[in-house]
Computed example of a mutant assay.
Amino acid sequence: MTADLTTFAQRLTAPAPHTTLDDPGALRRRRIVVAVFVVIGAIILGFSLSAEPGAASFVPMTIGLAAAWLIGGFLSGPIRLGRFGWRRPEPAIPFVAQPSSAVGAAALGVGVGLAVGAAFVVGALITREIGPLASLVREVLAFRDEGGVVLITAITLGNGLAEEIFFRGAVYSAVQRHQPLVWSTLLYALVTLASGNVMLGFAAIVLGSVCAVLRRATDGVLAPICTHVIWGAIILFCLPPIFGT
């Protein structure tokens, strides 16, 4: 059991075996596309979350934001799903040869999403007792009722998927040779701060770091997508009762 846990930890904290790298031409294209759509996305995000709750522009702009991340992600070049192996190899088999699959990556992402979501719920119970921080969280949660629960749920989870395709897909690959975990997370946090809400920026740093680790460990976006979507659902349905919104 201890050996299995050790192997799992090593696998999770190391780059995926046979990680794919872009050739120079593809890398140049990816960086240009990323630069353009980072600016577009930051502008849309700034306007959408700086609007007053109830503004007619909120839903169209958040849908437009998801579309921008998706278009930018796929225009930048190939977006890989990734893979992750769960079984510990036999002693005679090199560590990198252990079986891996997209199913393993998805299961990993779901498990991490549940853990991160639970951590945020615990953090919310503490934050609600700190007036200024609680107010910032309530500002974000005020948008939960825009257009109905079904629509806002679809928008929230859809944006989570789109963000992962762009930031852990396109952006991560664009800086893959230069500390991609650090730079993809930093850029994600900076773009999120365009909303003007520091609590969203903090959440972006935590979630972005976790998803970047998953991207590195699986060489793809499937695990980060699963984590982001599960986390988003937990935040959407668990935090409003905590903050009384």
Results as ranks from 00 to 15, higher is better:
residue 8 F to T: 15
residue 8 F to D: 10
residue 13 T to N: 14
residue 14 A to H: 15
residue 18 H to K: 14
residue 24 P to G: 01
residue 24 P to A: 02
residue 25 G to H: 13
residue 26 A to T: 13
residue 27 L to N: 09
residue 35 A to F: 04
residue 41 G to W: 02
residue 52 E to T: 13
residue 53 P to H: 03
residue 62 T to Q: 15
residue 65 L to V: 07
residue 71 I to W: 02
residue 74 F to L: 12
residue 75 L to A: 13
residue 85 G to P: 05
residue 86 W to R: 05
residue 95 F to I: 05
residue 98 Q to H: 14
residue 101 S to V: 03
residue 103 V to S: 07
residue 104 G to H: 02
residue 104 G to M: 05
residue 111 G to V: 00
residue 116 V to K: 00
residue 116 V to T: 10
residue 120 F to R: 00
residue 122 V to L: 14
residue 125 L to D: 00
residue 140 V to P: 00
residue 142 A to C: 07
residue 145 D to V: 10
residue 150 V to N: 09
residue 151 L to M: 15
residue 156 T to I: 08
residue 157 L to S: 14
residue 161 L to Y: 15
residue 161 L to N: 11
residue 166 F to D: 03
residue 166 F to Q: 02
residue 172 Y to G: 11
residue 176 Q to T: 13
residue 176 Q to M: 13
residue 182 V to S: 06
residue 186 L to Y: 08
residue 188 Y to G: 15
residue 196 G to R: 10
residue 202 F to T: 12
residue 202 F to W: 11
residue 207 L to M: 14
residue 215 R to Y: 03
residue 223 A to M: 07
residue 224 P to C: 05
residue 226 C to K: 03
residue 233 A to S: 11
residue 235 I to D: 06
residue 237 F to Y: 15
residue 239 L to A: 04
residue 239 L to D: 07
residue 239 L to T: 08
